[in-house]
Design a protein around this nucleic acid. Sequence first.
DNA 1: GACGGCCATATTGTCGACAATCTTGCTTGA
DNA 2: TCAAGCAAGATTGTCGACAATATGGCCGTC
Lengths: 238, 238
Amino acid sequence: MSEFDTPEASTDARTLADRVFARLQDDIVRGVLPPGTKLGETELAARYGVSRGPLREAIRRLESRRLLERVPHVGTRVAMLSIPELVEIYRVREALEGMAARLAAENMTAAEIAGLGELLAQHERQPGVQADTAYIQSEGDLDFHYRIIHGSHNATLIDLLIGEMYHRVRMYRLQLATLANRPQKALSEHRRILEAIEARDGEMAELLMRRHISRAREHLEAQHAASPDEPSWTNGKP
Amino acid sequence: MSEFDTPEASTDARTLADRVFARLQDDIVRGVLPPGTKLGETELAARYGVSRGPLREAIRRLESRRLLERVPHVGTRVAMLSIPELVEIYRVREALEGMAARLAAENMTAAEIAGLGELLAQHERQPGVQADTAYIQSEGDLDFHYRIIHGSHNATLIDLLIGEMYHRVRMYRLQLATLANRPQKALSEHRRILEAIEARDGEMAELLMRRHISRAREHLEAQHAASPDEPSWTNGKP
DNA sequence: GACGGCCATATTGTCGACAATCTTGCTTGA
DNA sequence: TCAAGCAAGATTGTCGACAATATGGCCGTC
């Protein structure tokens, strides 16, 4: 199970608020609490075995990460993401991850590149086409991107992508497992990105990464055009 | 006084936690609480006339924005920013604001463009070289960038730049008023960016914006090379 | 029958007190 | 004299109770 969490969010953090933050984020991202779920503070506090104080601190942090939406005096619910919003995110990812790929080609250590190669080889060894493994592949895709982002060795970039954007993408992806991926093509694109990084060709790595994300976005937009209100929890306010 | 605050942060928000968040952020960004200041919860609660509950919620949010640094069971202090970190931020700004400029050229309304023109004309009317007005110019620079970011009409981009990065830049800038700006050159660069936007030339707008920020970054790096430990609160842990 | 205002209820917002943890200065021994 | 351990103090973490606000159903009126 790939480790996507930010360092301070490990489950055995020093304070209850930190632990609740980690667990709640996990439950949201993994789909235990689907988008749109109303979260009662008393109920949640009981569920996690803490008082409402630490819980509210965790909620405020998740709100900052846009995983929760809160209305004063009314309540908190799990954030929803419409396809147009997701497309917007992909457009920003294109710029940021393109930059990350360029920096990764320049800054990744030999060990990091080797590790990335192993990860990719492992993905290629999997029988990629069955419906079941689509989910696995999906997480694997994130893992690949995740490593390149870290390979940029730019803390600001890492914070923005991992801390602010990726959780939302993950949440969405788990909710819409039906939304077909394109494993083989994505995999070969990953392969070429890796080759560019191995060649320390930053410009090429950026170009390939931008294309890779751009194609995923186009795929998404095509799906959306085909069935505009596919995700039942799409952001239409009731 | 330009309005940089995020909508929910207006001073008369519905809850104490929101108001404290806004006031505390303002005190940090405006330099009332300089970087490195230790923040005692009891003392702060008294200062803002609230209990520690809402205060802690505000602290967690400011921590998410990287304006505060917190160590469990030890305390909270105003975040510090070293020049290398700031340079890193400028590199990311280059990518994100370049994109914002391109989108602004494509998406800004005629009214928004007219308003941007007025703002720039107003800056050009100011006697730009005196030491005092450097600060004004400085805020004006941020205002210009701020409008272009919003002109992108991409909510994700706006959130990242305004919500996650700009507060840190603002804080830094106020602390280091001595770090000379380059008002005239920046102003003429702004003028050319505006022209590209008026011509709806997205590619040109992006190119010019990237150059503009890149030059500011180089200026920063040059200053830093000249006096490496200029800011007394630079991030060297004592 | 539909609309608007009112009240009971449940939920959120806030507070003050208690418990747990870290810091710091002192003591004690080598 | 210096270092390690300890204890007192201060600060942060957590909790349960109280107050304020919105929701939703009820009643009355048009």
